[in-house]
Computed example of a mutant assay.
Amino acid sequence: MHGPASPGWLLVALCAATGAYCLLRMRSSVEEQRRSAGGEALMGFGMAAMAVPAAAFTPPSWTWPLYAAVFGAAALRALWAARDAPHHLHHLVGTAAMVYMAVVMAASPGPRHHAHSAPGVPLVTGLLLAYFTGYVLLSGVRLLPATATAGTGAVVGWGDRPELARACRLSMGIGMVAMLLTF
């Protein structure tokens, strides 16, 4: 990723922390929570690695095709999972965005990665920005507290709390917007 180093490192920290929390969510007793958390951990750590400022580390040229292959496989898995659970379509869009960014980075000459030199790139970037901006706004609204209702008093592990999972997805959405803005 290119751009100022400080925001880049903040994005790396946000995505890595999100990935780490998603790894902890994989210990959930709820099967769907575990499956979802694994894909989200991959996204978080992948985004963190991709967001490392180019001034600090310029990855070798073989890195981008590897990212494209890993996230291409994750996109196929999300497509397969979306048959039974439509909410996996968001995972499909996220992994496809990672593939797109990896392909653009692989095709970009030199360490500065002038992504807008390829035809069609601004259109795809714009569509992805519109999607993730809408996702971030909708996710933010969903985090607003609802009216309190009488609970059952059951103790829920902090890894199974739905509001933390939504906050995790929101932070990755914000990270994706930030990454796409640099393209």
Score class of each variant (00 low, 15 high):
M1T: 07
A5E: 04
V12N: 04
V12L: 06
L14K: 01
A17Q: 03
C22L: 07
C22E: 10
L24F: 14
R27D: 07
S28W: 14
E31V: 13
Q33F: 04
R34P: 01
A37T: 08
G38Q: 05
M43G: 12
M47G: 03
A49S: 14
M50N: 06
V52Q: 00
A56R: 06
T58R: 14
P59L: 10
P59E: 02
S61I: 05
A75L: 09
L76D: 04
A78G: 09
A78V: 14
L79Y: 09
A81R: 10
A82I: 10
A85N: 15
P86F: 05
H87S: 14
L92W: 09
G94A: 11
A96W: 10
A96T: 15
A96V: 15
A97T: 13
M98P: 00
M98R: 08
V99G: 10
A102M: 01
V103T: 15
M105T: 13
P109C: 12
R112W: 09
R112N: 09
H113R: 15
H114G: 02
A115D: 00
S117V: 14
P119V: 01
P119E: 04
V121T: 07
V121G: 05
P122A: 01
P122I: 02
V124M: 15
L129Q: 12
Y131D: 04
T133A: 13
G134T: 03
Y135A: 10
Y135D: 09
S139D: 00
P145C: 03
A146V: 09
T147M: 09
A148Y: 13
T149L: 12
G153W: 01
G153C: 00
G153M: 02
W158C: 08
W158R: 10
W158N: 06
R161S: 04
P162K: 11
E163C: 02
A167G: 13
A167Q: 12
L170E: 02
L170S: 05
I174T: 03
M176C: 08
A178G: 05
L180T: 01
L181C: 06
F183L: 07
